[in-house]
């Protein structure tokens, strides 16, 4: 359905079909090496107080395909996103993008390298119009330097080109009608669309979407799915966090499962969904055995102790 859509920007000669085929022969075990990884992370850990939020031994993300990152709440998916994109600093670990190490690189530099993210709680610029939101996304703007800013002729032509590109994207993401509206007036789903479209203004190689479907009404979901697929089809790599299993099964080429900060499984969608380790991760190890009264008490006491510890850690 997206085959006719305009393919813009950097399409670094990725043969999508080849990339997908390359994944076929890979053994579905956690931390397995990929034939052409765009993103590689090694022993990345992050703790908050006593809680280990992320503890990833090894992870590779294949170029040119859609990789889903799934796991129960609190598995550390968003924290991992923050770490990889420079929004948070890990306690240990190294990670690289296209072979360049990203350790201690600030978030804006990571974004400039072509690795752009969206947020779980959508971050649109409410008091700016939709088209202004889009324009902010464009990179290397001459008019963004203080001295050139005051001399409009220096940046006007570039601004025009960026606006054209933005209008094309708005058209594609069905937001053209909202062009002059304040972004704050958009619905939740439209905000997700705007955020995604805006991130494309930076012309990224790797797009990282944090729960793109959360809070989106079912009618919009299908079109969003199409958009994510179209990203891959124009040669970009997609890594996304999602809870909606139908979506994961529908569009992803590869699935990585996290639980309690660790990568517990990865593989093609069908294989992973059938993996008992994944079912355990989602429903907890005790899901099939009835809890005895003592066990229940014990679990409650543990939870209580943890809350206490947490509370003390705050003071």
């Amino acid at each position: 359905m997206d085959a006719e859509q305009e393919v813009t920007g950097r399409t670094p000669g990725v043969d999508v079909e080849a990339s997908r085929r390359a994944l076929a022969g890979i053994e579905p075990t956690p931390g397995v090496a990929k034939p052409d990884p765009i993103l590689v992370a090694d022993s990345v850990t992050r703790t908050f107080g006593g809680l280990t939020a992320v503890d990833v031994a090894h992870l590779e993300v294949q170029r040119g395909v859609i990789t889903a990152l799934i796991g129960p709440n609190g598995a550390g998916k968003t924290t991992l996103f923050n770490l990889l994109t420079g929004f948070d600093r890990p306690d240990t670990g190294t990670w690289s993008f296209n072979g360049t190490s990203l350790g201690r690189k600030p978030a804006y530099k990571v974004a400039r390298m072509g690795m752009v993210r969206t947020f779980q709680l959508t971050k649109v610029l409410s008091k700016l119009t939709v088209i202004e939101n889009m324009r902010v996304g464009a990179t290397a703007q001459r008019g963004e330097s203080l001295l050139a800013a005051m001399v409009a002729p220096l940046w006007r032509s570039q601004e025009k080109a960026n606006t054209d590109r933005a209008d094309n994207l708005l058209e594609r993401f069905l937001l053209a009608e909202k062009r002059e509206d304040f972004a704050g007036s958009l619905s939740g789903g439209q905000r997700k669309l705007l955020e995604m479209a805006r991130s494309l203004m930076t012309d990224p190689e790797l797009v990282m979407l944090d729960e793109p479907m959360a809070g989106v009404n079912p009618a919009l979901k299908q079109s969003l799915l199409g958009h994510v697929k179209s990203l891959r089809d124009e040669g970009r790599t997609v890594l996304f966090v999602e809870h909606d299993m139908d979506m994961v099964r529908d569009i992803s080429d590869w699935v990585v499962v996290m639980a309690q900060g660790k990568v517990v499984a990865e593989g093609p969608p069908d294989t992973v969904m059938a993996d008992p380790a994944v079912v355990d991760a989602y429903l907890g190890a005790h899901h099939d055995a009835e809890l005895t009264f003592e066990e229940e008490e014990k679990i409650l006491a543990e939870a209580e102790a943890e809350i206490q510890k947490e509370a003390q850690g705050h003071e």
Binding site: G49, N82, D88, D210, E315
Partner: peptide, 9 residues
């Protein structure tokens, strides 16, 4: 001195 670091995102 005794505050906790904030989490982003």
């Amino acid at each position: 001195l005794l505050g906790k670091a904030q989490r982003i995102g």
